[in-house]
Design a binder for these strands. Structure first.
Length: 292
RNA sequence: GCCGGGAUGCCCGAGCGGCCAAAGGGAGCAGACUGUAAAUCUGCCGGCUGACGCCUACGGAGGUUCGAAUCCUUCUCCCGGCA
C-alpha cells in the first residue's frame, strides 16, 4: 500500500495486516532511524496493535542508511519471513522498488566519491562521455550527484551507464517487471491533504517534536538532518529562524514531499489507485475490494 | 514638528534613465530518478496567446525626458534620530 505522506496509509496498513494476519514491511527512508518517531509519523507500539513491523528502527540517526542496505535488509526479511502475508507500505518510491524490483546497486567507495565530489562537473562529464558516448541520454549531466555516482561506478567496476542499462535486469526495471509477486494499491491523498498536513504538524508540535529534535540533534547525521520537519526545527534550534517559521516551512516541505511522492508513484503502472474516502471503515472496504 | 531611510511581482529581495516583465532566493506548478532519495536535478512561474506579439505592472497623483522602477514635486503609510 503506497501513497504520499498524510494519506492515512499507516492506519490502513495495520488494519489490512490484521485482516490477513500479515506482518508489515515499511518502505520509508526516514522511519528506519531510531528515535525519529514523532516527525516521521512512525506508528507507536500501541498503534501497531500487535502487528509486527519490519524495517523500522533499523539504523542510528548518526548513520547514513542507504537504499542498497535497505534492499539487502528487506530481501532478507522477504526470504526469511514465516508470516502468511506481508503488507508493504510507505511513501519512499525508490525504496519500494529496491525491495520488489531487480535493482542492483553497484559498489561504492567513500574515498573515491569524496575525491570525485571535489571535481568540476564539466570534467566529470567529459570523463564519463569519453568512456561512454551514450551516457548523456542516461545520466542527467546537470545533476552533479548523479554524475559523480556514474563516474564512481565506472572507476570501480568498469561499467558504464550504457552497459548497465543494457542488462536484462535493467530492462525489467524499466518495464516494471518485478522480482517478487505483489498487488499494489495507491491511496490518493485527496483534496484534504493540505489541511491534514497542517493538523498533523500541529499535533506533532504539541506532541513534543521540538524536544525530540533537540535531544536527537547531537546524534543526527547528514541524512537524518534532511528529513522534513527535522531540518526546519533544527534551524530554529540553531536560532536561524523562529519556531513558528520553522513549522510553516515544514508544512510547505510536507506538501512538496507529497507532490514528489505522487509524481514518483503515478508512473508505476502496477499501482491501482483508490480515491480518498473520509470514513476509515469505508476506505478499508474499498482497499479490500481492490485486492479481490 | 524637524532631519534622514524606505515602499518592487504570491513572499523575501536586487535594480537606481534605455539592453527591465524587471537579478537572485522562497513558495507554487510540471517532470526526471538504480548505493545521500523526506536527497539531488530539470523546465515553467504578471495577464492574454500555439507562436510572433499585445496589454498591465515597480505605494497614489502629477511632472521632466525621445525614453522613468530608476530624476523632480506632492500625497499616503512604515522605520531610525532629534524635539
Amino acid at each position: 500500500m503506497l501513497g504520499p505522506t498524510a494519506s492515512g496509509k499507516t492506519e490502513m496498513a495495520i488494519r489490512l495486516a490484521q485482516h490477513f494476519a500479515a506482518e508489515i514491511v515499511s518502505v520509508d527512508s526516514m522511519q528506519v532511524y531510531r528515535g525519529m518517531d514523532i516527525g516521521t509519523a512512525k506508528p507507536t507500539v500501541l498503534e501497531r496493535n500487535g502487528v509486527v513491523h519490519h524495517l523500522i528502527d533499523v539504523a542510528e540517526p548518526t548513520e547514513e542508511f542507504t537504499v542498497a542496505r535497505f534492499r539487502s535488509l528487506g530481501r532478507q526479511i522477504l526470504d526469511e519471513t514465516e508470516a502468511p502475508a506481508l503488507v508493504i507500505t510507505g511513501g519512499s518510491g525508490l525504496h519500494f522498488r529496491a525491495l520488489v524490483d531487480p535493482l542492483s546497486f553497484a559498489p561504492t567507495d567513500p574515498d573515491l566519491r569524496g575525491e570525485l565530489e571535489g571535481r568540476e562537473t564539466g570534467e566529470l562529464a567529459a570523463e564519463l562521455l569519453g568512456a561512454d558516448p551514450g551516457a548523456a541520454a542516461l545520466v542527467d549531466m546537470a545533476n552533479q550527484r548523479r554524475l559523480v555516482r556514474a563516474v564512481e561506478i565506472y572507476q570501480l567496476t568498469g561499467e558504464t551507464p550504457s552497459s548497465r542499462a543494457a542488462s536484462a535486469a535493467a530492462e525489467d526495471v524499466r518495464r516494471y517487471v518485478p522480482e517478487i509477486g505483489f498487488e499494489a494499491v495507491g491511496v490518493d491523498p485527496g483534496s484534504g491533504l493540505e489541511a491534514r498536513v497542517d493538523v498533523r504538524l500541529r499535533e506533532m508540535r504539541e506532541g513534543g517534536l521540538v524536544d525530540e529534535v533537540r535531544s536527537l540533534a547531537p546524534r543526527m547525521g547528514r541524512n537524518a538532518r534532511s528529513a522534513v520537519g527535522y531540518r526546519e526545527v533544527l534551524s530554529a534550534l540553531e536560532d536561524e529562524i523562529s519556531m513558528d517559521e520553522a513549522f510553516e516551512r515544514a508544512a510547505a516541505g510536507s506538501k512538496k514531499l507529497a507532490r514528489k511522492q505522487r509524481t514518483w508513484f503515478q508512473r508505476d503502472p502496477r499501482i491501482r489507485w483508490i480515491p480518498w474516502i473520509d470514513d476509515p471503515d469505508h476506505r478499508l472496504g474499498r482497499i479490500l475490494e481492490t485486492f479481490d
